[in-house]
């Protein structure tokens, strides 16, 4: 279970899904594991605007990870060289791939390589706990909670 994934999960119960309290789910008794994966700088750049930064920040605090800045970094901070105009986009992409900043690498580490191996995810609205085992979260509900 990647930290990135937590940004797109909420409680599976119908009554919770639409509430703010159910997002993000809160990790509890989490055992973290670093699972290395290839760096794809453009993936990080493209995914960044889609992240609910406050939720990510909150989860990092709860997991005891280093505190993130208050606001999401600007795209320009991800690459050492500025991205050149659209007519040479291909070159820009290639250049960008060669020059990811430390910040981009840190985000890759946090979002894609830092995983919850075991633990629980707790809904802040109803309190239901979802188990994470072998890196896979289980959202199947007992029938009385559906």
């Amino acid at each position: 279970m990647k930290i990135l994934t937590l940004n797109f999960l909420t409680c599976a119960r119908k009554a919770c899904k639409a509430t703010n309290a159910a997002f993000p789910l809160h990790p509890r008794d989490a055992e973290l594991e670093i699972v290395e994966t290839d760096l794809n700088p453009l993936f990080i750049r493209n995914i960044l605007p889609r992240i609910e930064w406050d939720a990510l920040r909150e989860i990092c605090v709860e997991l005891g990870l280093p505190t993130l800045p208050d606001a999401a970094p600007e795209p320009a901070a991800l690459f050492a060289e500025p991205i050149v105009p659209a007519d040479t986009m291909q070159d820009a992409d290639e250049g960008a791939e060669k020059q990811p900043t430390q910040l981009l690498q840190d985000l890759h580490r946090l979002l894609l390589e830092t995983t919850i191996a075991t633990g629980k995810l707790v809904c802040g609205n109803c309190g239901h706990e979802y188990a994470v085992k072998e890196g896979i979260a289980n959202f199947l509900l007992p029938s009385h909670l559906v």
């Binding site: 994934t5 999960l9 409680c11 599976a12 896979i136």
Partner: peptide
Amino acid sequence: EPHSSVVADNLSLPHPLASF
């Protein structure tokens, strides 16, 4: 990679509404 997967029921999906 880079994707992710979870165990869930098709009728009770654990995702925020109107966000994908």
